[in-house]
Computed example of a mutant assay.
Amino acid sequence: MGILNITPDSFSDGGKYTQIDAALAQVESMIEDGASIIDIGGESTRPGAVDVSVKDEIARVIPLLKAIKQRFTIKVSIDTSKASVMAESIEHQADIINDVRALQNEGCLAVMSQTNLPICLMHMQGLPRTMQAAPQYDDLINDIHTFFKERIAHCNAHGITTDRIILDPGFGFGKTLEQNYELLAQLSTFKNFNLPILAGLSRKSMIGNLLNRDVDERLAGSITTAVIAAQQGANIIRVHDVKETVDALKVLETVNKFKR
């Protein structure tokens, strides 16, 4: 899954793809590099991020979604937590909805109950503006498991069948440095749900803080975490650096063919 942030304030590539021509060029490049899904985000969810209005998010996301669908055959995921943005995106041929709030915001369950599209439910403790202040868990892995069980039950109660659900444990969203690496080490435990797992670790502060690397110096760390996530059973790897990650995963896939 190739990341396409069309926001001025995203932590890694904020402002680079706010113009539609630049965004489409990036989409074409990611497709050529091996992406099978493009994930469009119209609101930054980095720690401390400022909220974006529904009107502004729709104005950012929908024209680009329409342009991609006119030019390419790639699947498009829309990264949003707003019911109105979900509804508009579905109307304009989005293939997946990716919600960091796991359909907890008003109206989101109702919107998704009216479609058969896949929905990615992400775990986040708190909200983007404050989530990294002091995250605390009784038991990190069990707490996230409990959260997913509850959200899946809510989805089922609103007619969203389990086979449409993707799970994202939410690396960097209300977790300390140590908790993020515990989560990565234990990622395979979420295979118990028998649902696809999405892992998004690309260029995140868990890499920068561990290695003392700025955002543009985190490629090696990002690739390493992507490979570990795949080894732990992740089905979708959400990344900025598509070409390099695809190369690494091809090597892993080839090695796995010869395991006994």
Rank of each mutant, 00 (worst) to 15 (best):
Q93G: 04
E106P: 08
G159K: 05
Q26D: 07
L252W: 10
E57N: 05
M206N: 10
E43P: 04
N116Y: 13
G42I: 06
N209F: 12
I207K: 07
T45N: 02
L103Y: 02
L210D: 10
S205V: 10
L167Y: 01
Q125D: 13
I20T: 13
A199D: 00
L219Y: 02
V227L: 08
H154R: 15
F72S: 00
F148C: 01
I68R: 03
A35E: 02
I237S: 08
A134L: 14
P47V: 01
N194E: 15
T161G: 10
P128M: 09
L109M: 01
A94L: 09
A133Y: 14
F190L: 06
S36Y: 08
S188L: 06
I144Q: 05
D143V: 09
A248W: 07
S10Q: 10
L249I: 00
T176S: 13
Q186E: 14
Q125P: 09
D21G: 11
E57K: 08
R71C: 06
S113F: 02
G34R: 00
G107M: 04
Q104C: 13
F11W: 14
S113R: 03
V50E: 15
C108Y: 05
A94V: 08
K16M: 14
A230Q: 02
T189A: 12
V85H: 03
I197E: 08
A153P: 05
N180A: 04
I31A: 01
S12C: 14
D95E: 02
R164H: 03
H145S: 08
G170E: 12
R260S: 15
H145M: 11
V255D: 14
A234R: 08
D247S: 15
T254Q: 15
C155S: 00
A49N: 03
N5I: 04
L64F: 04
T45C: 04
G41V: 10
N156S: 15
L117T: 00
N180K: 01
I68H: 02
N105I: 11
V100W: 07
A49V: 02
I68G: 02
L195Y: 08
N142C: 13
R238G: 00
D216I: 06
L219V: 10
K55N: 15
F147M: 07
H145D: 09
K82R: 08
F173N: 01
D9S: 12
T225G: 05
N212L: 12
V246Y: 02
L103W: 03
M30H: 05
A102M: 09
R60P: 11
E106T: 14
I68Q: 02
L219S: 01
I31L: 06
M30N: 06
A59R: 14
D139W: 11
F190E: 04
G2K: 07
Y137E: 11
A102H: 06
N105K: 15
G41S: 10
T7G: 06
V111R: 03
H240C: 07
G126Q: 04
A133W: 12
H92T: 11
R46D: 03
Q179E: 11
T176F: 04
H158G: 09
D39I: 01
N209S: 14
